[in-house]
Every structure is written in structure tokens, then in C-alpha cells.
Design a protein around this nucleic acid. Structure first.
Lengths: 188, 188
DNA sequence: ATCCTAATTTAACATTTGTTAAGTGCTTTT
DNA sequence: AAAAGCACTTAACAAATGTTAAATTAGGAT
């Protein structure tokens, strides 16, 4: 069985029947570096979990590409604001390297909810987790200066610094590339 | 019946039995200006909805009081990061004026979930809403400069500017009081 | 290997925000 | 009414970040 199921089990226990039902709607997909998994303007109807690789969610604001977040292995990747509202998302999902993912169609997922309450609760928990991470990110953006935010990213997602180009990291931190370059230079 | 139930109905429809069960665990409380509804260090075990008044969630960082958010009428007020993890919260909830609220004990609430699936879904939806607002706040903090953030607050929560003291607004925007005062002065 | 392009760094200067401190006005206490 | 405390503003200067542009480096393509 796909290793995504043990991961799900670690979040919320599932009955054997639910495991099977859920495995039945998980599709494994591959996508090449720099490709969009989901484009801006599409309504979010698919959830993704990275098996291998790295992804980002981004949007265009006043003509500038802004990275909202980076996602590594086993992370839930979804544009929640679109999913919950059923509206087109202003955000896209792009992979930063050749990646393998599991994709789950949300309508197939929700149709399992009626019969499999544990699956519904599992996904509630997954979104709770994402919510809590979002709250912590606010604290980070609200309270810390740019340089501290950089060091926090270095500490919490060190792989991002190695795998993502500078421009993505800069907009993620809410600063310019030049400013980020300066901060990096200070380290030596 | 308490006007909180129609509000709940507008979020997710509830059966008559569920309405009654839920109303049965809603308590109306009053609290005086500047009092803490929940103190820092307590684990979040109660959800609140404001009937009248205004509240803020805050935390202390390096000795400084930081306002994480302002909440007005009918807003769900909860320290989600504590509730979902079952751990003590680093955050407190304070009311800015004499307020009336509904409080819901979370263990009473979750014990209704088994029998009343619509109640469980209602609260999933309420947390989804809060999650989406949090996502939007990140976009705000990440992309906009201080002055723009001020004008966004002015647009989206104008009552906050009238009802909250400057120091709370400043830390909410992630700037100093002095800087906020300067931004205000520009307006004229 | 060489060329071409994109990514990153550096520099110089402008703007924004932070820091400290003083000043003004308002409210509360006595 | 006077005094004290608090909230907010203003000023002067320091530090951080943005902007523009040039220089350097790294990677890909041929």
C-alpha cells in the first residue's frame, strides 16, 4: 500500500475499510520541474501531498510574483481559500523540482465522508494543522524584522534555502531580492 | 431563542434537535472593559462569540504586548493553536469594552459531535472561515507596506480604529506607535 | 569549450520605519 | 482646581529596507 496511508494513520486512525476507500482515490502523479500543478484562476478541486520534491503556492500582485508558502514531503498542499469558498483561486501551485505527488479529488473525498466519518475527521485534522501553521506564520511576519524572518526560515525549513531560487524566498519573506542578498552577506 | 442560533444556521443548516442541543451549551456571559476573558497560559477550552463589544487576542513577545487580532460581533474567538494541540496558549483574550458574549465549552461541544454530525460540520465550517481570514491576513502582512496595511484595516475593520487604542493597532499592524501616528498624520 | 541567459551580488542613493525623547492634551484622582 | 498618569503626537536622528543599475557568477544550450 502506498506510504501515504501510514502518514494519514499517524494523523488520525482509520478503519481498514476507510484505509482502503481512501487509498482508492489517491492517484500518484509526476510533474516536471517548474511546471504548474494548478494554475491561477482554477478552482481548487484537488488536494496534493508531496511524495518527493518541493512545491510552492504563489500569486501575482501588482504584476509581481509572490510566494505564499513552500511545501515539502508529505505536506498537504491546497488552496484552502478557494476550496472552502468554491471560488476560483488567485493562486497557483508550482513545483520547484521534478516531483512525485499523491493527488486526491475533493469531490471523491467528500463523497467518502458520509460513510467514513474517520476520513472526514482526518481531513479536518489536516486542515487544522495547516491552520495552526498559518497562525504561526502571522506571528512571524507581524513581529520579526526581515533578518529574523530569514533566520527563522533557515531554522524551520532549511531545505528551502537550498532548493528554492532567491526571488521566491525573498517574496516569501516579504522583502526584495536585494535586501535578502544583503542579509545573506552579513552571515560571513 | 438566542440570536446566536440563527447565525449558526446561516453558516451551516442544523436540525431542530441539533439547534436545541447546541443552544443548551451556549452560555451568555458579560465582562467588563479591559478584563481578560482568557489569560495567557490557560489551555483553550472555551469558544466565544461576541454578542456586543469588541475583543482582541494578544501575546507578549520579548516583553512587548502584541495584538494578534481584533474581533467584533458574531466573530468566533478561539486560540486555535492551543485548542487543536490541547496545549497551554501563549495568548490571551481581552475585551476592549464592556462586552456580552456567548461561551461554549469545547468538551461539551465535542460530545455533541457523535450524535449531531451537523454540529460537527458547522464548527468545521467556522474554523474554515477563520482559517481563510488568517490566510488573507498573511497576504496583507507579506505584501503590503505599513501604510497600506493601515488603510486596509481602515477599510475592512473601520470600527477597530475608533474603538481600539493606538498601541494595540500599531502592534497589530506590525509597526510602532510612532510610525502609526506618522501614517495617520499624512492623511490630512 | 564557448556563448548565452538567468541568478545573484554589490554599490549608491532614496525612502521608510525604528528609537529616543520631549511636548501636548485628556482623564482620573485627590 | 491641582496633580498625576495615560494616550497620542511631533521632532531629530539612526537603522533598515527599497530602488535602480551595474558587475559578477552560475548554469544551460549549442
Amino acid at each position: 500500500m502506498s506510504p501515504i496511508i501510514p502518514y494519514f494513520q499517524s494523523i488520525y486512525p482509520l478503519s481498514a475499510a476507510s484505509q482502503e476507500a481512501l487509498a482508492g482515490i489517491c492517484r500518484e502523479i509526476r510533474i516536471a520541474k517548474n511546471q504548474d500543478l494548478q494554475s491561477i484562476g482554477q478552482t481548487c478541486k484537488t488536494l496534493y501531498f508531496l511524495k518527493k520534491g518541493m512545491a510552492r503556492i504563489y500569486y501575482i500582485k501588482d504584476g509581481t510574483d509572490v510566494t505564499e508558502g513552500f511545501y515539502g514531503e508529505f505536506n498537504l498542499i491546497a488552496r484552502a481559500e478557494s476550496l472552502f469558498a468554491g471560488k476560483p483561486s488567485q493562486k497557483g501551485i508550482q513545483v520547484l523540482e521534478d516531483s512525485e505527488l499523491w493527488s486526491i479529488d475533493t469531490s471523491a473525498l467528500t463523497s467518502l465522508y458520509e460513510e467514513h466519518r474517520d476520513i472526514e475527521r482526518l481531513f479536518s485534522k489536516l486542515f487544522e494543522k495547516a491552520y495552526v501553521e498559518t497562525i504561526q506564520r502571522i506571528e512571524n511576519l507581524q513581529f520579526h524584522a526581515a533578518e529574523e524572518r530569514y533566520h527563522l526560515l533557515e531554522k524551520e525549513q532549511p531545505e528551502v534555502l537550498k532548493r528554492a531560487p532567491l526571488k521566491f524566498i525573498a517574496s516569501y519573506l516579504g522583502i526584495t531580492q536585494v535586501s535578502l542578498s544583503r542579509i545573506r552577506a552579513k552571515k560571513s
